[in-house]
């Protein structure tokens, strides 16, 4: 249990998706205009991460990894399919996003109205594929760890985009040099927030 909490804190603050790896930067910069929409996107990203990473973990452990298929029959033990992981991960993500969209539309129309426009965008959000690829690299021991990792990445992303949106709502009232307006100042804010987040790097868990 303690290990899981450590992993969670570590992925939220130290290995933050946005500030340490720049994943999901495109939608991060494009959607962070207001706090309300960024909240919606953040929740949608966390939600999709929570579903896709464990599924991809199972896929990786039982089918793609070197020698993973030995549970079917010992003769398959020598097969290494890991070069297929990109194409299978992205296919899983795209189809799961589609399914999630349909389920949410059917059973929770109010949630769908809020998340609706963001869900299709998420299939091509680098944070989702990135989390699956990092999961593959880190060799987690069981599904639980992979799930906690997904939750941590999602919450970290949510925090980062909320902070950014809050700052951007206020920066409207300040004088920004004309060429920096909009995109430029957003990059600088993100850079400064990143430096602030680097303060967490010293924490040893």
């Amino acid at each position: 249990m303690e290990e899981l909490i450590n992993l969670f804190v570590k992925t939220v603050f130290i290995d933050n998706m946005i500030f340490a790896y720049f994943l999901g930067m495109c939608s991060y910069l494009a959607v962070s205009r207001t706090v309300k929409t960024s909240m919606g996107l953040g929740i949608a990203v966390t939600f999709v991460l929570l579903i896709t990473v464990p599924v991809n973990y199972l896929l990786h452990t039982y089918i793609l990894k070197e020698g993973a298929m030995s549970w079917i029959s010992p003769t398959l033990a020598g097969i290494d399919l890991s070069f297929l992981s990109f194409i299978l991960f992205i296919a899983i993500i795209a189809s799961l996003v589609q399914i999630v969209e349909m389920v949410v539309e059917k059973f929770a129309p109010s949630l769908y109205a809020q998340l609706g426009i963001f869900l299709p965008l998420i299939a091509v959000n680098c944070a989702i594929l990135g989390a699956s690829l990092f999961m593959q690299q880190r060799n987690f021991n069981n599904v639980g760890e992979a799930t906690v990792y997904a939750l941590g990445s999602g919450v970290g992303w949510l925090l980062a985009i909320l902070g950014m949106a809050a700052i951007r709502e206020h920066i409207k009232y300040s004088k920004v040099p004309a060429p920096l307006k909009g995109l430029g100042i957003t990059f600088i804010i993100a850079g400064l927030m990143g430096i602030a987040f680097m303060g967490f790097m010293g924490i040893k868990l």
Binding site: F19, Y21, P179, K181, G184, F187, G191, L192, M193, G194
Partner: peptide, 23 residues
């Protein structure tokens, strides 16, 4: 990593100072 963001911001600054219509 964060400095990459700031370097890009500087490039945007220069580029938009030259192409005023992008501001």
């Amino acid at each position: 990593p964060p400095m990459a963001l700031i370097v890009v911001a500087c490039i945007i600054w220069v580029q938009r100072s030259i192409n005023k219509d992008l501001q």
